[in-house]
């Protein structure tokens, strides 16, 4: 895999950074790729803009931040509006479909996948805190950029007390991702 770039945008509190860290850990330690994960956020603890980035490669990574993402996961309208134009041509846009609408011209060839991650976490997993785990599952299923085994492993390491609920969230996310793939728009 040559340089592959992922950007995740949303609000502080949605687990935007944590999601990138788990994806990064999984890709680096389990999939044995070169990975750099970075983030930017405002001074607020919650509610401010939050952005995280992951660069994955088979070679050592020079510039550590995203230049033009292959994948953009939008978890808030504000993040969508700010970053959607940076998406690479023929890139992948994954949106939380209850929070974000495609409301502007997209870069050429962009494929859009709609995943109601917050709703699935709230109604099916019964824990909104798992929204980011649902989204990780969907991301892995849609892009295949990281291994699902790696994600599972890393989540168990990181949250040993919440293995069951996170596995459920991940499985539901994978399903939602597969569904979005099938009904690609």
């Amino acid at each position: 895999m040559s340089r592959y770039e992922i950007r995740i945008g949303g609000f502080g509190g949605q687990g935007i950074v944590t999601m990138a860290v788990v994806i990064g850990e999984s890709s680096s330690l389990f999939d044995k790729k070169y990975v750099v994960q970075t983030q930017s956020y405002g001074p607020e603890a919650r509610g401010g803009a939050s952005k995280s980035e992951i660069v994955i490669s088979d070679e050592e990574i020079d510039y550590p931040k995203v230049i033009a993402p292959d994948v953009f996961i939008a978890m808030s309208r504000a993040a969508y509006l700010e970053y959607v134009h940076g998406l690479k041509e023929n890139g992948v846009l994954i949106i939380d479909s209850d929070l974000v609408n495609v409301e502007s011209e997209l870069p050429q060839g962009v494929r859009v996948y709609r995943v109601p991650a917050t709703r699935i976490a709230d109604q099916e997993v019964r824990s909104k805190q798992t929204t980011n785990v649902v989204m990780m599952g969907a991301f892995a299923a849609i892009t295949k950029a990281i291994s699902i085994d790696g994600l599972r492993h890393q989540m168990e390491e990181r949250w040993p007390k919440f293995v069951k609920i996170n596995h459920l969230a991940l499985e539901l996310g994978i399903k939602a991702g597969e569904k979005a793939l099938a009904g690609e728009s």
Partner: peptide, 9 residues
């Protein structure tokens, strides 16, 4: 800050 806050192996 980027070096302080970035994550790598």
């Amino acid at each position: 800050e980027v070096v302080g806050h970035m994550r790598e192996k």
